[in-house]
Nucleic acid binder design. Structure first.
Lengths: 338, 338
DNA sequence: TTTGGCACTCCCTGTCCAGGAGTGCCAGTG
DNA sequence: CACTGGCACTCCTGGACAGGGAGTGCCAAA
């Protein structure tokens, strides 16, 4: 493929993203100083269309890029345009003010939405990838405990535990010591094994209670792989004519489904630094007309993902830069809080 | 005002809500067995319009209710239609499965959205109206604590505290004992006063730490009146032609602003059992074309509000019944967990 | 007070037409 | 051989316009 043809493709992508209207040969020839005439551009366009990178909404209209065209643009043509120094400072300051993990996530998701003018999604640090920092037992009534788990990523999870026998204060201290001895510092991924042996280690008279505690721990904290996700910027779906082809309905619905959002963020297994999924490349049916840009974040290793969702006609260089920068800053913050 | 005129108004409201189209005199006369002719209905309609209860989108169109008309309907004409037994059971079961407060709120907001086909908003139990059940201090590093507060309404709040000196395990125990002695069982509304005296009660060598702890407590837990709010069912904004007059933009934006949502739920001071705010009655500018139905909930006294937001042309009897029923069930659950 | 009749208003839909943007193709040129 | 200018053609877009329909207001009669 010709160098000039690539330039024509770039021009079409850039203009279409900017104006949101099919771009014609004349416009390309004029505005992008390619040094050739419109007729030549037309020939190149015919080639690009043949090759599947661009298409015409109808005969006698300009061209718009296809998913394949955007893909090529992202892979070979788009130079990431870094955030301005002012933006960097603002991001840094805004995130540094967060007072706890919830706040970090909330601020992050808003920031992403605002920077990219798109819908932003941020996954809370995955429990599967966290370790236990501390377990706390608070006795509410003699037969009722609250179990609070704090992880090294800052998450705090709590559950009620109904215990079969009345507990003294010492009993509670004992249990607390036990679970902490066993679990502190351990990755939650290893926890089920450890929890299984928990009841056996308790004083005989606490066995029943310990086993109930173990059940709750296992059932609600570990087995429940429920991932928490925050969303912001839904209003951006109505930007300009960004209306996704059909109605907003399915998109808005999908944005309230954790399962869908997790799919969108791309299966926790991917460790790629930054992923761009364009159109059909998305697994989720409702997002076949959308592009999703995601990045992993975490202190050292990846503990969660964040990303933005927008129309395929998005400002790729800008969006990619924003997602990458924010993910990086959030990672730094988590690192500090460790 | 004539009895029949009221019936005509009811007919207009009901038909308009059902069909979403201006309703004409003929339709009213036919479908609602008033025993009079269309011409008579026309006369009544002229009166109702004169009185401001209904209006014409344009000459030679049917009538639609005004906000004033809906108000009259709600106050005098709408019989609340209770949920079916099956619905009640489903609501009860669904909410009873919740494992903690977060879960209760999440389930509640979804349930409301689903039952009413509207946007649902649920406020977490307000800290201002809760009491301290327990304060927990977890030492993360020698100079860093995590403060966890558990309230009687089930909320769990945590903050980091950087302390000025290294703490021993005993120091932490001491501080924990101190804050719990002082604050346990106390309403958070009274907390600032108590917290102010906290540092003075600590051992001299812990003064500095205690005062920092007090600062954090005061600053981030009490003074910060930040209310948490959950939203669900945004997709319902696109139901039928429910599109609010203009675009969805401002509505979607407003739904991400906690401040706005709290205004919408109606100033924490209102203790009314159930409130219906129609059109202009709403304080929030963006919701001038909407109706908000809210109810307080809580064990015994009101600790928070929940509600739904929809077009003024909503099914009032059904919506009111749903909100009331859900608020009642949630109150029961909180009562049990106390 | 109610009713049937009638003229009138205004929206809605479909059709038609002109204008404009952009294309594909072709023949000519360096 | 690649590029260019020209030209006919296609198809969308927006405005103008007419016909049909729904609903009203008013009036005279029961």
């Amino acid at each position: 493929m010709d160098d000039r043809k690539l330039e024509v493709l770039r021009a079409i992508v850039e203009d279409y993203v900017a104006t949101q209207e099919p771009v014609g040969s004349k416009a390309v020839a004029q505005r992008h100083s390619l040094g050739v005439s419109a007729a030549t551009v037309r020939n190149d366009m015919a080639y690009l269309e043949e090759a599947g990178y661009i298409q015409q909404p109808h005969t006698s209209a300009g061209r718009i890029p296809t998913a394949k065209g955007y893909r090529l643009f992202v892979d070979r043509l788009g130079k990431i345009k870094p955030l301005s120094a002012a933006e960097r400072r603002a991001v840094h300051r805004f995130l540094a003010e967060a007072i706890d993990l919830d706040d970090v996530v909330t601020r992050t998701v808003r920031l992403l939405a605002q920077l990219t003018h798109q819908v932003a999604v941020v996954q809370y640090p995955s429990l599967n990838r966290s370790s236990v920092r501390h377990l706390e037992l608070v006795s509410l009534t003699p037969t009722r405990l609250m179990l609070v788990m704090i992880t090294d990523t800052g998450r705090v999870e709590q559950r009620y535990v109904e215990v079969p026998a009345e507990l003294t204060e010492d009993d509670v201290l004992d249990l607390r010591r036990l679970v902490n001895e066993q679990l502190q510092g351990k990755p939650l991924a290893d926890a089920p094994r450890i929890i299984a042996g928990l009841a056996g280690l308790a004083r005989p008279e606490l066995r029943a209670t310990a086993s109930e505690l173990a059940r709750v721990l296992l059932d609600s904290v570990v087995a429940r792989t429920e991932e928490r996700v925050a969303v912001a910027g839904a209003a951006n779906l109505t930007r300009n004519g960004n209306f996704f082809a059909g109605s907003l309905r399915p998109i808005l619905e999908a944005l309230e489904e954790e399962v869908v959002l997790m799919q969108l963020l791309g299966r926790a297994d991917s460790n790629a630094l930054l992923t761009v999924r364009i159109g059909d490349e998305n697994e989720v049916a409702d997002f076949r007309e959308a592009t999703v840009v995601t990045a992993g974040y975490g202190p050292g290793s990846v503990v969660g993902h964040m990303g933005v969702l927008g129309p395929t006609r998005m400002d790729y260089p800008g969006t990619i830069a924003a997602v990458r920068a924010v993910a990086r800053y959030v990672s730094e913050i988590l690192e500090q809080n460790r």
